[in-house]
Nucleic acid binder design. Structure first.
Lengths: 260, 260
DNA sequence: CGGTCGCTTGAATACCGTCAATTGTAGTGG
DNA sequence: CCACTACAATTGACGGTATTCAAGCGACCG
């Protein structure tokens, strides 16, 4: 059901024996893809080290807290939730990851994972081991630049997420969340206004610092106001303009900049 | 009204012709200092490019939103507040920076600053222009590693800050904030339990997603409970143990790990 | 068909935000 | 040095919003 890119390029393997191609094609779709813009020679090198097309089924962990980290991961399709566990056992949701996005940066500072990464649906990902990556960076100026560029953008992106999550009232947080999901989907050219959330209400709530019930109430209220239609995990945005107004036009701009 | 950097930078040259020394000394105190662990040769090189001992007086801007960014900055003493402005004109506080901490990472991806950085008190900082930094990284494997290490740790650090700011109730947010300040001070061996906040109540409130009044009420309540004494900006923590319990012991551990 | 799980809805409560008044503090000039 | 001013912080009362607890609904699955 959710296997966008794979399907679209199912006839990829024949194009190249090295198998770098699939990644190249992906790069056209994913602006922040790691090897984007690399010279062909280095691209080959890079491609020979990553482990591509791995599959994780819903509910499986990509990695656990405490586990030593040796790789970066990039999502090809599906979605991942990252979270820490408090001593009382409840989840503190850190974020959600969509196709084209990287996670597991702590591998770059050789620290163990400090959180869990869980597949919210069937998810295809690439694993990029850091030790060959480090070796490659010795030779490849452009790879080094690209990596630093990506990490840096991640920092500014997190900053913007912070602006969402810290909004005062529940309404604007939930609105901003929906706009964010919609914008991030637009990156890989999926429908902007009709989509299925892969996480449940509790996850959204934990992420936004609210309760499940409040998130639910906001959604039904938005529906009553004609801003969207919601049926379980399916969302249809009917009036994006108005939704942006709810979350604050400036917040929308921040989010928009983060995606472009 | 707020004119940026300008200011003094007077008697630097006499200590050393290369001027690396002051930075080296700092490195002993600041574990995350950029050139930490560099071979002497490269350290010299590095030191010759940074602009050290710049002074910013209270209320002055280190940089403005929109301004093009060409340097990283590291605090030597004092403190900096970073914030964005919403369209309604109110501040969205992103964070506070203390000695040993780096800011302005967007320079590494050659994007303009998307926020303001303001000195909360008289602040000494170093400016590290990125173009020589990039050139140096071509030759210096260890510098490259160190930079990536620092940026990566910044991401995990931000994640932990997120756990603070997203706590449900005001009490635990304020408590976590105080513990955080205290721990970050401990890095440069300042008093853990008696200190002066450099930001006002409104700044703290905006940072935590609360109001000034709520922050104030939490502080006086903590005082009534005997956890601390507060007089204007001066805080004396009387019972750190209990304070950590208020913010949730696991959050405290997260913060602690971020500092060490 | 009954059971589980995720989601919604309702009512009561607790908490935080708002507004307004007061006190306190720092900075300025007499 | 003190008085004055401007601004920061505190405090109180009130109303609104989110949480809590509990019940009800509906989809999915055995």
């Amino acid at each position: 059901m959710h296997s966008p890119i794979v399907v679209a390029h199912s006839n990829v393997a024949r194009e190249s024996s090295l198998g770098v191609d699939t990644h190249c094609i992906a790069c056209k779709l994913y602006p922040m893809c790691l090897p984007r813009g690399l010279p062909d020679k280095e691209l080959e090198d890079f491609g020979s080290h990553i482990r591509r097309r791995r599959i994780l089924h819903r509910g499986r962990m990509l990695y656990h807290a405490g586990q030593s980290s040796k790789s970066l991961y990039t999502i090809r399709s599906g979605s991942i939730k990252t979270f820490a566990l408090s001593s009382e056992g409840d989840e503190m949701v850190e974020g959600f990851y969509y196709p084209g996005e990287l996670l597991g940066f702590e591998a770059l500072s050789s620290e163990p994972h400090d959180h869990f990464a869980l597949a919210l649906e069937t998810t295809e990902y690439c694993e990029i081991p850091v030790s060959p990556l480090n070796r490659l960076m010795l030779r490849s100026e452009s790879l080094r630049r690209q990596l630093i560029h990506i990490i840096t953008r991640r920092i500014t992106g997190d900053r913007r997420q912070g602006y969402i999550r810290n909004r005062r009232d529940a309404r604007s947080r939930v609105a901003a969340y929906l706009v964010d999901v919609s914008l991030r989907r637009s990156r890989w050219r999926k429908s902007l206004d009709h989509f299925q959330l892969s996480m449940d209400r509790r996850d959204i709530a934990e992420y936004l610092g609210l309760t499940m019930e409040t998130v639910s109430r906001c959604l039904t209220q938005f529906q009553r106001e004609g801003l969207l239609r919601v049926k379980a995990k399916w969302i249809r945005l009917l009036n994006q303009q108005a939704l942006r107004a709810v979350c604050g036009s400036d917040v929308w701009e921040e989010l928009h900049r983060a995606v472009v």
